[in-house]
Computed example of a mutant assay.
Amino acid sequence: MKSVMHSLYSGAIIPWERSEPDSEKRHEILQKLEDEERYFMEKMSLDDCQRFQALSSLHMELSTIGEENLFSYAFTLGMVLAMDVMKEAKGIFND
């Protein structure tokens, strides 16, 4: 297995490519989503409105799964990096 530190240095692992959009843009998009949902819900029948809300819940559930996977990836990457640092530190102090 290639060293995580070497992979980070060489560009094989690029953490910022997995980042979330900036918070201001995210807030703007969330506001637009709320406005559009409100617009459509006002036009729908009660049954359609309930189905639309269920659909929205499914999207949220899917998003949560993605965020959980990202957290797991980032945490694991951090721990592997820490283990690599410890290996390198042993080499420095054992010389």
Rank of each mutant, 00 (worst) to 15 (best):
I13Y: 00
E67R: 08
G66K: 11
M79D: 10
F40C: 01
K43N: 04
D95N: 09
E20T: 02
D22N: 05
V80S: 05
D47M: 07
M41K: 13
F71Y: 10
Q50S: 05
V4S: 01
S7C: 06
K32Q: 13
G66Y: 11
H59K: 11
E88S: 07
R51A: 10
E24Q: 07
E34Q: 14
N94F: 11
D35V: 07
D84M: 04
M44V: 01
L81Q: 09
R51D: 14
S23D: 06
E88M: 10
T76D: 06
A12C: 08
I29P: 01
S56R: 09
G11A: 01
S19A: 13
M86A: 15
C49M: 10
S72K: 12
L62W: 10
E34K: 14
F52C: 09
E42A: 07
R18Y: 14
I14N: 12
T76V: 06
Q31P: 00
K90S: 11
S72Y: 08
K32P: 02
S45Y: 00
L30N: 15
S19V: 05
S10N: 12
M86R: 15
A89M: 09
M5W: 02
L55N: 06
P21G: 03
K2Q: 11
S63G: 12
E42W: 03
A89R: 12
K87Q: 13
L33S: 10
M79F: 08
S10H: 09
T64Q: 11
E34R: 15
G78A: 00
F93H: 12
E24M: 11
G66N: 15
L70Y: 03
G91A: 08
S23I: 03
A12T: 13
